[in-house]
Design a binder for these strands. Structure first.
Lengths: 127, 127
DNA sequence: CCGTATCCCTTAAGATACTG
DNA sequence: CAGTATCTTAAGGGATACGG
């Protein structure tokens, strides 16, 4: 895990040394996971993704797709017709990531009510 | 997953409606996951955590711990001695989250080299 | 020892207008 | 249709100094 240990406890090294920081920095942003799971339903086009992911702007969709392509999660195919058609689909690496993230996502789905109530409790007790 | 579907494809509703967005927004920040896994090794004190997580500032450690306490992931115990001693430990909910995130983290650890090389390849082919 | 309070700079990201 | 370019605001987060 690119960590060292001191008396049995993990130490997390900074930036480049730590794969956790790297990957979380990539897919921990606002949109990557949503794109990832959208494409899990099959290849899709730019504007379709834009519709399916509520609130994403053109700018962020483009940018996040580029980053994901760069990291090898997504393939981009241009069909040279008029008007042009562009399809995005997951690579094997992307599907692997989605599978790995699935546990977290389904946990989130099951427990978000616990979190909500913990939050309300905390806010009631404090300011 | 708080998503609707349109011709077999998921649609991701915005903010409050979507547990994925909520949970990812919380633990997708720069520090939460590192604190989570640090505390998986057992309860720990403020300054110890600060040492074990390279590069975290006092400000962000305090703030992130507060957020995690608010969400019910962490318990905070103050021992009223001089100087004061404060211990943080995971709740059951926190341990559940860590367990759920484990798959992603170990995937990250196994595949970060694939990502690095995909990135280099992309950068070579493009600007 | 464990924080808070300020200050300030950098990055994220929304809105809008324009192009092959 | 699928972007790019530009502008502007909001949020993230580091550094430092001080307090119980």
């Amino acid at each position: 895990m690119a960590t060292e240990t001191k008396n049995g406890k993990r130490i997390f090294l900074k930036n480049e040394e730590c794969p956790i920081r790297n990957v979380v920095a990539q897919i921990g942003d606002k949109w990557s996971i949503l794109i990832l799971f959208s494409l899990l339903d099959g290849p899709d086009r730019f504007n379709s993704l834009k519709t399916r992911i509520e609130g994403i702007s053109q700018r962020m969709l483009t940018q996040t797709l580029r980053d994901m392509e760069r990291d090898g999660y997504v393939d981009r195919t241009v069909y040279p017709q008029v008007p042009v058609k562009v399809e995005y689909e997951l690579t094997d690496l992307g599907r692997g990531l989605a599978k790995a993230a699935w546990g977290l996502v389904s946990w989130a789905d099951e427990h978000h009510k616990d979190i909500r109530s913990a939050r309300q409790q905390y806010d009631k007790e404090n300011g």
